[in-house]
Design a protein around this nucleic acid. Sequence first.
DNA 1: AAGAATACAGAACACTTTGTTTTGTATAAA
DNA 2: TTTATACAAAACAAAGTGTTCTGTATTCTT
Lengths: 188, 188
Amino acid sequence: MDRRQKKTREAIFKAFTELLAEKNYNQIAVQEIIDAADIGRTTFYAHFETKDYLLKALCEKLFGHIIDTAMGSPHGHYHYSCKYSADSVFLHLLKHLQESDRNILELLSSQNNEIFLRYFKSNLKKLIITQYADKGLLNKSSLPEDFLINHIASSFVETVYWWLSRKMKETPEEITEYFLGTIEPILN
Amino acid sequence: MDRRQKKTREAIFKAFTELLAEKNYNQIAVQEIIDAADIGRTTFYAHFETKDYLLKALCEKLFGHIIDTAMGSPHGHYHYSCKYSADSVFLHLLKHLQESDRNILELLSSQNNEIFLRYFKSNLKKLIITQYADKGLLNKSSLPEDFLINHIASSFVETVYWWLSRKMKETPEEITEYFLGTIEPILN
DNA sequence: AAGAATACAGAACACTTTGTTTTGTATAAA
DNA sequence: TTTATACAAAACAAAGTGTTCTGTATTCTT
């Protein structure tokens, strides 16, 4: 990829991220992004067809890595002990969130949080299907598997939201305990 | 209130609701609402300062009644037997949703569902505080009360969303069973 | 290092949407 | 009937959108 492209792409992401942290997505004009990124009008449209595509690209950039690492190597990345169960995936995710650059946390805490939480949830569902459903862990309950997948993904995302909106006072371990406290009784 | 005001106000709500059912909120121009409602440009702005205020007014109109009736007379409205516990509030809500004019269901199922589900959730929290927290029903758990309120409200809203997105195949009783199946184990 | 390729800036363009103002008319309330 | 006011219609500046053009600067290639 051309160095010039990387540079302007990064400038656009940076400007967009900063704007998202301070104001509503709907109220951000393409013109503002252009001004903040200090690029030409033509250049923006050469990179992103619309503002929505830019948003999508940002989501993929932010969440892609976190979800991928959780999918690929869910265990063994951390040194503390954790049982080799699907449950630890959630602790893994929380730790990654806490350690991630502050962009993702800032956006998840901003007034645009719903946009990113939605994207987070849709990716999380795929993860749960891999880690739970495909391993037959959701068959024990009397509730429909489809319902359970949605419930688990929603609960986790909402837990993360609750954690963030209260300035992450608790440790990832505590939050995992809270979260598992709400879903483990259902699965047994 | 002036008959003319009522009439145009209703025309605006009708046009807005129909537009919301078919396209994204962000992509609806005030001009479209004006055209669909067949009113003058000045008239719209005389009634609603912005599109956002119109949305807020619509939310209050749609959810205000449902939540109020659930708060005021949570039991005794239906003839079938139901235990006089706080749990029946959820069945009450689902039945009201099912019976409500198709506007609210159409909007909750539209691509704008998040806007309305968010509003629904915030109102639901107040209801849960009244029906659960203030009655001391959330003290038995080892989880923080604040966390539980958010969890219960989120879970119910997500359950409703799951129900709607699958065309309401199940009865309100079945959905209540599913939902209570996820939260009752936590409270005992 | 030289050439070809291309990413970019800057300006101009037609177009849409926004929110306000003005003037006159029709409808409601007193 | 009289008074009040909700409304329509038109015009307005301002801002934003997405595209097209031309020339310049940077980069990749060989």
